[in-house]
Nucleic acid binder design. Structure first.
Length: 204
DNA sequence: CTGACGATTCACT
DNA sequence: GTGAATCGTCAGC
């Protein structure tokens, strides 16, 4: 499996990268256990100009500092005290772009995913929604800062390219606080994929 | 030091 | 549709 490289992550257009992440494989690897999921839903966060981003207005805190670092790094944070949300840092240093992975279609290590999530059987919800993605993949806040060019967590190329026509967009979920930016179509997902989270309300 | 709250999920009405 | 779970983070004192 070929990893996506630094050039891929360092590019300036976060929406373009988000588009290109769809259909690719997220891999986690630790304690001799590997899990693999195809990325079917993402959200782009456009740095300091984006009111929905933790880095809006150039806000820097110990937690968000990761986003100002090198592209191709994991940014994981705890949401609502219980959910670990996994993001990918993009663009050059000091430009805090990030992409939230919101849903995966299980590809490998499904037994382990079932064990981690406590589900008796495989179903569409196993890695649907950002909290469930992390749970199924075994990702937690302690992985914030992990290098995606390494072997623990990485994104792999995949032969099957996603056609542009198969990608749909909508406003992002749970960012109503972001005023005029709340309506931006920065949530991207593979049309008709049953693992995509939420209700189906297509924008285009 | 303190309190308010979140890029959510799930069970329940 | 509504509400509880649950705790690290951060602004404000």
């Amino acid at each position: 499996m070929e990893k996506l490289d630094l050039e891929f992550y360092e590019r300036p257009n976060v929406l373009r990268i988000a588009h290109e992440l769809l259909g690719r494989l997220l891999v986690t690897n630790w304690n001799g256990n590997q899990t693999i999921g195809r990325i079917v839903e993402v959200e782009a966060y456009d740095g300091i100009v984006d009111k929905a981003s933790h880095a809006y207005g150039g806000r820097r805190t110990p937690r968000t500092e990761i986003m100002y670092g090198r592209a191709g790094t994991a940014y994981v944070y705890l949401c609502y005290g219980l959910h670990h949300l996994f993001n990918i840092v993009t663009n050059k240093r000091d430009i805090p772009h990030a992409i939230l992975i919101r849903a995966l279609e299980p590809v490998g290590g499904t037994e382990l995913m079932l064990k981690r999530t406590g589900k008796p059987d495989m179903d569409y919800s196993i890695a649907s929604g950002p909290g469930n993605v992390s749970k199924a993949m075994g990702i937690a806040t302690r992985h914030s800062g992990v290098d995606l060019l390494g072997n623990q967590i990485f994104i792999a190329e995949d032969r099957h390219a996603i056609k542009k026509a198969d990608i749909a967009s909508s406003p992002r979920i749970g960012v109503d606080y972001a005023a005029e930016d709340a309506g931006l179509p920065y949530r991207l997902f593979i049309r008709d994929n049953p693992f995509v989270s939420g209700k189906k309300k297509l924008v285009k």
